[in-house]
Design a protein around this nucleic acid. Structure first.
Lengths: 336, 336
DNA sequence: TCTCCACCATGAAACGTTTCAATTGGCCTT
DNA sequence: AAGGCCAATTGAAACGTTTCATGGTGGAGA
């Protein structure tokens, strides 16, 4: 049924070794033979068998990616599309996996390593001293991470400069005339969270404004958390006129809180989010939000991974990308 | 580095054939040998090499899934999680692929078939006379589809009863006292679209109401399309007090249109969506929406696929699942 | 003319499994 | 005691590649 390299060889009147060379080392084959073989390949629709190739080469040509937990996070479809597309360009496949119920995250990775299904991993959502980074570094197993982390041994990573994102948000609202700007962020301790807070402070400093500690709230992810933070801040003695957040859901919660208090988000209060989730565009008013170039991130992740696999000796490369503020009505009608 | 079946055999003092039998046909091995071998396997952390297994068995133990185009569709993360998890339970992997720029969809599938990377496909978003179904049926290549289709030759599918979804929406709003109920649907010609329209009519009939043709609009997917449809309907001589839609984005558009016209969605106008996207929960008011059991769909899809692979002769199985209406504030405060 | 070399092609080994025919040894039957 | 049968195990072939040592050919240099 399926065509093998032997079928091609027989048909073209050459040995299988020659066919293999046409595919993998064309310079070893005369132009004439080469074109004849290519012709037959085309004619038969031959494609090399991945399993046989992997077996012989002791490489899988596959990159593992552990699916993030479901939730209203960033756009997985865009990310995966680019991951799969770029991998395919390099002749690689993406192997997905997910922890089974109750399974430890690290064990999940170990299990995949042991079954030899992948040559390396792409990690997302890495954090300070991420245990996956430590484990994989320790094992010497190749990986590329979305998210830098201040770990002893260097490794290849891509990241989006979160500080630039919140700084842009602050610059935008202060540019609209806001002077009392609040921040709703995560508890300190996460790389991305802390970076976004730093951007906020930088932005305020750049606008010549002081950061009022009363207007900096720390809370977990989530709509309800945002709502509560919003109510707290807006009911305080000297409430903000603009609130910057580190996540869209928090922003949605704050808009809701404002509405409950009789304020019109986008008129009486400016709100910004982070991640530019699909929901941000559908709100009324639409939520001004920081968009991360996830397709670019995915592309670079795979490039780094593939490069690392073929150049194991080289020092790891890193890349910092910049996010972009998408301005919508949640801020536009506010300010002076 | 990696342990092979030979390492296990040597260590346990048996042949590789015996080790293989312990794994694949335990009844052929004495209890004593079996436990000894299992012990060694545990000790060495041995895992069979997938490539070698595939090569020998001429099976990949992998199911292909073509990523849907990015867009604010249904929750891909939930779906994929379950797809990967269930596949893993069966000892299968999921192989993702995506059409390259400008590539024909069918060619994408053909290419995957030719490279022999998968044993079968899971299809989503199938439609009437779906060309993929026709092609794969023609080739005799196994697949399982999310979405029935009235095609000549039967095939395994799972579907969510869209009619039940819209009927539930109608039942809900008429139960709140609404009498003039509008529908914003897609142009006829899609399986899921037509089914949802049918559910609307069924629901209206069940409530003893006539369907006013003026209140049935057909439009493409999208926020802006929804907004325009909403404006049209609400500005008409005899506007509806409730609007049922076949997609969340359309619902968002309608809520926006209502707001623009000075109506308060959730008070003066009831709106329902379909798919229960993440955004539906974050709106203010939250959008009442029909939730499809996507995790269940994914689970069944893989089960059907695997069953089909091991029982090629049997008539294909099918399964119809029921969606559930998630009630939120976009309808709750309305009616009499 | 002889030698050497570059170039091209070949054939066989190896990758880690599964499968299956063949072998061994123990036990039952007669 | 011989034969037969069954359960357990073995060894080798096969899956479709890549790799690499080997062989053959023709032309250039001596």
């Amino acid at each position: 049924m399926r065509q093998t390299i032997r079928d091609v060889g027989d048909r073209a009147g050459v040995s299988v070794g020659t066919v293999s060379n046409v595919l993998n080392a064309p310079h070893l084959v005369s132009a004439q033979t080469r074109s004849k073989v290519l012709e037959v390949i085309e004619e038969l629709g031959y494609r090399p068998n991945r399993a046989a190739r992997s077996l012989q080469a002791r490489k899988t040509q596959s990159i593992g990616y552990r699916l993030p937990d479901p939730g209203p996070g960033t756009a997985l479809d865009v990310f995966l599309h680019q991951l799969v597309g770029t991998a395919s360009d390099h002749g690689f496949a993406i192997t997905l996996f997910a922890p089974r119920a109750g399974e430890d995250d690290l064990d999940t990775y170990l299990e995949v390593i042991r079954s030899g299904d992948v040559d390396g991993f792409v990690l997302s959502e890495t954090n300070y001293d991420d245990p996956r980074v430590e484990m994989l570094s320790g094992l010497g197993f190749p990986f590329a991470a979305f998210g830098r982390a201040d770990h002893a041994s260097p490794f290849p990573w891509v990241d989006v400069d979160g500080a630039s994102g919140t700084a842009q948000a602050v610059e935008h609202v202060t540019g609209l005339g806001h002077r009392r700007v609040g921040l709703v962020a995560w508890p300190s301790g996460s790389e991305s969270g802390d970076t976004r807070v730093k951007g906020f402070r930088d932005g305020m400093a750049a606008a010549g404004l002081e950061v009022d500690p009363e207007l900096v709230l720390r809370t977990e992810n989530g709509f309800e958390q945002g709502r509560i933070a919003g109510l707290t801040m807006l009911k305080s003695a000297n409430p903000p006129t603009a609130i910057v957040t580190v996540q869209d859901e928090l922003g949605f919660g704050i808009m809701t809180a404002a509405t409950e208090l009789g304020l019109r988000p986008g008129r009486d209060l400016a709100v910004t989010g982070f991640d530019d989730t699909a929901a941000a565009a559908f709100m009324w008013p639409g939520l001004t939000s920081v968009r991360q170039p996830l397709d670019e991130v995915a592309r670079v992740l795979v490039d780094l991974m593939v490069h690392r696999l073929s150049n194991p000796g080289e020092p790891p490369q890193t890349m910092l990308l910049h996010p972009q503020l998408v301005v919508r009505d949640s801020t536009l009608g506010t300010g002076t």
